[in-house]
């Protein structure tokens, strides 16, 4: 099971995603939610493809808050449908130093 390739990364950057954000979210989804890395593509539907539901969303955003030290509650979470939507709204936080807030 291989993760996204360099081509994928360039594609993510082109779509305006912060590469560190993508790496962090993928890490959480793989390690905590046991989703294979190969399935973690921006077009993946959270519900149908990744089998995540509302309980998982709560835990994912709690983990993101812990990792970034930022409050994500104010983001437009209700608009999220695809993995790329999460990459996009978390990238808006302009996070530079990911992981330093983890506890």
């Amino acid at each position: 099971m291989e993760g996204p390739t360099e081509v994928d990364r360039k594609h993510e950057m082109a779509q305006g995603y912060n590469a560190k954000v993508v790496e962090l979210i993928n890490s959480i989804l793989h390690e905590k939610f046991e989703i294979p890395l190969k399935d973690l593509v921006p077009s993946a539907c959270l519900k149908n493809d990744l089998k995540l539901d509302s309980l998982d969303f709560v835990d994912m955003f709690v983990m993101l808050e812990q990792q970034t030290g930022r409050n994500v509650q104010d983001l437009d979470l209700m608009s999220i449908r695809k993995l790329g939507d999460i990459y996009k709204i978390v990238s808006q936080l302009e996070i530079d130093d990911l992981g330093s807030q983890s506890h």
Partner: peptide, 9 residues
């Protein structure tokens, strides 16, 4: 110092 950070499960 409150309920933030609680898991949904």
């Amino acid at each position: 110092n409150g309920i933030s950070g609680q898991s949904g499960t």
